[in-house]
Design a binder for these strands. Sequence first.
DNA 1: GTCTATATCATGATAGAC
DNA 2: GTCTATCATGATATAGAC
Lengths: 196, 196
Amino acid sequence: MARTPANVQPGQINERIIAAALQLFRQRGYFSTSVPDMARTAQVSVGSIYHHFKDKEDVARALYLGLTERLQDALADIARKHVPAHDRCRAVMAMLFELTESDRDAMDFMLYAKHRDFLPSERPICSSRPFETMRAFVEAGMERGEIRRMDVMVATSCLFGGAIRLITARLDGVLAEPLPDRLDAVWECAWRGVAA
Amino acid sequence: MARTPANVQPGQINERIIAAALQLFRQRGYFSTSVPDMARTAQVSVGSIYHHFKDKEDVARALYLGLTERLQDALADIARKHVPAHDRCRAVMAMLFELTESDRDAMDFMLYAKHRDFLPSERPICSSRPFETMRAFVEAGMERGEIRRMDVMVATSCLFGGAIRLITARLDGVLAEPLPDRLDAVWECAWRGVAA
DNA sequence: GTCTATATCATGATAGAC
DNA sequence: GTCTATCATGATATAGAC
């Protein structure tokens, strides 16, 4: 079973392998991580990894799909709780900042890894479902008259681009303070930029 | 001679190797590019590459340093031509958009490649000299009263983050139109966000 | 289902002729 | 300085015992 459904138990061997992969991919990168490395970190055997996954790329794919699904769930939750685009998008930014602080490896892999290098069949991250959902939030905001009329991709890039750059700065260790400390400042800039 | 000084003649073997590396790194990524691949594309021999460069990583380093130096030169040029932060930063954004259109490979490698994976000794791109210069432009704008007082990294991220996201969208093929067509719209959002 | 041991292969790097 | 031919390393993926 190569995919990682949302209902696997934590502690299962599948999950252990994926967690080890995430940790190692972040530390050394995909190509510098060998399958024996993964086996050692996950405390399983090499054969076991090849029993559960087709190959190394398949582990990376399961990891990628699991993380984007988790992000998508968080976005759906935000969409339920808030209706105005202002509130939705601010909640998205806060969620991204908190996720970066609480699970740096996951954020690093999603935002920063060059998936095309080892997942040629997957779409680039900025055309993945979470990013599409964020564009939909912005588009709805335009229809409600909260956000100025303009190209949707331009508006979405401007609204979240600053936050994403700050996240990469944080992941690179260039920014010392926790991201949530900067939320108010970044949000004010972002919203001023696109608000009607 | 492993470094690539700015004064090498085009058509020289050094330049051919670096140009081939850039093309291949962008197409297949660093780790999927072998030294024989580079030799074939550059139409030189493997031995020749190892004569001019210490190893594959050394080629990547020369490429990286050459590109950031080129960017740094463009920024210095802008600093000479414009004094107000508004004009300077707008010129930076225009330059980044034009560079993306005219030399997609170069932009892709600089912005999108995960250098830490294969250049562990180099600083991450967002603490490289060009990015420092952009932060200096923003800081000067604050002192002139053009830009609101806030954390410099927050302001710089917000001012250029939208443009950078749009560049990655363009590089991924998600954005069909040339970037300069979007310059006015992106700049308006960005400047509104930080202007005093 | 999980493990160890190994076959196979590709790559980075070198040696040595010219 | 440039080339061809080769080596040594370390990876992926598999085979087969338990």
